[in-house]
Design a protein around this nucleic acid. Structure first.
Lengths: 235, 235
DNA sequence: AATTTATTGTTTCATGTTGAAACAATAGTA
DNA sequence: TACTATTGTTTCAACATGAAACAATAAATT
């Protein structure tokens, strides 16, 4: 998470973001690693005193991915008491030689708003923040043990993503401008965690009337070439 | 909302609750009225420094409805800047002759977690809190103008309720132990805001396998008597 | 006791949707 | 020209849904 320095932040409030990307095969999330501690955590941060919540999250994501206008969705707010461990927070700050007063709210309980982001994996150059030494992609089906309740947060995000996959045409955000039907199907399979029937998947997608068909993509393989599609942007 | 007095609360954090009940005909919500100002607002409150968020909301609801173990669901966290108006807050406190320091966080922006509750309308004796002079039921399709962004919060709650109506068998919480198929249908119609086909509704509900059929209910009307049903509680 | 009325429970049938398989087309390779 | 791998399309059975009709019945009326 980003460290509150001179700026004034809302005390006891944080956000955590689950940043999804699609590698072409697997669904991935961005995780930060705090060296000297070996701990992994979700990228997160704090909200400035006069900053809209949504804007705080966008800002954090911009700093870490370099991307403007990211698809963002709030999914749950975590407010139990067990979710934070002060000693862990102390250790992280110490490892970074940060000086924070003993009684700072950082060491008390706080409430964290969970967001997930969907981004084009190929356009990102992950940037570590002030507290962490590295940030990288990890398969959602092989997430290491995370700090605090962050594993739980990832679970909840995935759950939300799955149940809203169809309604919101979320896959737009995980794919490049043009893509094949197979790639679209792979995104669905990666998110849902199960194979889809090819014929039925194609029928369903085409019947939605949200895809525009373009030229074929000749990959050099000795077989029929697939069409490229793009999403029809609607207002 | 409940006033933070001596107790320590998490600053800049509140919750607002949309409490739904079913009158037998219409879907209703509980609203508080601040006399001397004429303003209506959702029942809400604050979170104690060492209290889980869920528990804070349960506590507030218990105080206002007298009910233990209420069905509660968190649906969204509101964090924009425009949502609060300090002058309104001042006026409410003044009207109640409460003394709060000029620079208290109550007059600054805060983040509010939205919850909705589903309760058995017949079991509730609404209790006003320290700040409001009355609390009463209002039809969801005739909600007066509310303080801050509370009308927006009600909209979001309804939306969430509608989309999760089937998945979570939410109607359990709005009806008494035993009810007729017609009453169940009326709950659905009140929430969805549209008529359902009687035959198809009955077929769908029975096919779910979640209803147990009991004795008939003889109301005295000169027509076939309906069966009473209850939900089968599953573990 | 037979008839009437309002309401509830059930069935029917046409239409739509979905799941699984087969069939058809085609870009390269042998 | 045949072969192979992959994609696009069609078919058909199974299942779900929407609208209407039919059947049952509790009480009131004749």
């Amino acid at each position: 998470m980003s460290l509150p320095e001179a700026v004034q932040y809302l005390p006891h409030i944080a956000y955590d973001s689950v940043i999804f990307g699609f590698s072409g095969e697997k669904l991935k999330i961005l995780l930060m690693e705090y060296h000297n501690t070996g701990w992994f955590a979700l990228p997160g941060g704090f909200v400035k005193i006069n900053e809209p919540l949504d804007e705080a999250v966008s800002r954090g994501l911009r700093e870490r991915t370099g991307l403007e206008s990211i698809y963002l969705e709030q999914f749950y707010t975590f407010g139990s008491l067990e979710r934070v461990r002060p000693e862990a927070m102390r250790k992280i700050l110490q490892a970074q030689h940060k000086v924070v007063p003993e009684k700072h709210w950082l060491f008390e309980r706080f409430i964290s708003v969970g967001y997930y982001a969907l981004i084009d994996y190929t356009k990102v150059e992950p940037q570590p923040d002030a507290l962490s030494d590295s940030i990288d992609w990890y398969d959602v089906d092989a997430v290491p043990q995370l700090l605090f309740d962050h594993n739980h947060i990832v679970e909840k995000a995935l759950e939300h993503l799955r149940t809203h996959l169809d309604q919101k045409l979320l896959s737009v955000n995980l794919l490049p401008e043009r893509f094949t039907m197979k790639e679209l199907q792979q995104v669905y399979e990666a998110i849902l965690g199960e194979k889809q029937n090819r014929a039925n998947f194609q029928r369903k997608m085409l019947s939605l009337g949200i895809l525009e068909r373009h030229e074929k993509l000749y990959s050099g393989g000795s077989h029929k070439a697939p069409y490229l599609y793009s999403f029809i942007v609607q207002n």
